[in-house]
């Protein structure tokens, strides 16, 4: 089992991601430089958070054209597993590996705080160890995190059980005051129809180290690991 964490210029959660996988979960991890054209035999690709290429045009808009992304797209189209977190989610949407888009937060303001998200399905690799309805406390940190998709797409996401997480309050209720970026239908994370590409705005890698007092995010990575080992 080998993880690959893509490093774009401007990625800033790459070290954090690698730390969780390598030091906390004892996994083999490769940092994949954006100019490379080879995934080096990785079984699971993660696109970390940050501001790829400065995100000056639109978050993720430039990154999708990088050499490594050609490989990531081909890998995903062949059924390979890809998870995008925050900026990684934005890149996956820009690359059309996931439906919808991440728009500016209300007030055009960056926001960073602990958020609560509710697991919507256990029928996905990243939610395998969770139960539907289970609430996790996971930090968010983004300026463009408002999930948007046309109604037809939203309907299909629901019909195909592709919504992985929704923002909620501490007890799991969907509540407008706990939809931090005003996302459509409280959506915080989704997967593609083939269930091999995942995207989420909250940062599970920021809630994985016991020394920081919150390990809810670890459940996401444990889900991946358990499921991959079983496969």
């Amino acid at each position: 089992m080998k993880f690959g964490v893509v490093v774009f210029p401007g990625s800033n959660c790459d070290h954090d991601m690698i730390y969780v996988l390598k030091k906390l979960m004892d996994q083999e991890v490769m940092a994949l430089w954006h100019k490379e054209k080879d995934l080096q035999g990785c079984d699971f690709i993660i696109l970390p958070g940050g501001f790829s290429y400065g995100d000056y045009l639109r978050s993720g808009a430039i990154a999708r054209f990088s050499p490594i992304m050609e490989q990531v797209i081909a890998f995903a189209q062949k059924g390979g597993y890809v998870l995008g977190i925050c900026n990684g989610f934005q890149i996956l949407c820009e690359a059309h590996l996931l439906p919808g888009a991440l728009l500016h937060n209300p007030n055009h303001r960056f926001m960073c705080h602990n958020a609560f998200i509710r697991c919507e399905t256990d029928n996905a690799l990243v939610t395998r160890t969770l139960s539907p309805g289970q609430v996790l406390k996971i930090p968010i940190a983004h300026g463009e995190g408002r999930y948007y998709a046309p109604e037809k797409t939203l309907r299909s996401l629901n019909d195909q059980d592709q919504v992985l997480f929704r923002y909620c309050d501490e007890t799991g209720n969907l509540n407008p005051s706990h939809n931090p970026n005003n996302s459509e239908e409280y959506i915080a994370g989704i997967c593609n129809e083939n269930r091999n590409v995942f995207g989420m705005m909250p940062h599970p890698e920021r809630a994985a180290d016991p020394e920081l007092g919150n390990t809810d995010g670890l459940l996401v990575f444990e889900g991946i690991l358990n499921a991959m080992i079983k496969e």
């Binding site: 303001r109 930090p139 919150n214």
Partner: peptide
């Protein structure tokens, strides 16, 4: 403070336990 990323680097020990000083792991 919400407009600042206070957690990148995963070393902030005060996110879940605020204290009088910032603490870096």
């Amino acid at each position: 403070t919400d407009q600042y990323d206070t957690m990148v680097g995963t070393k902030n020990m005060t996110t879940n336990n605020p204290s009088d000083a910032g603490i870096v792991n």
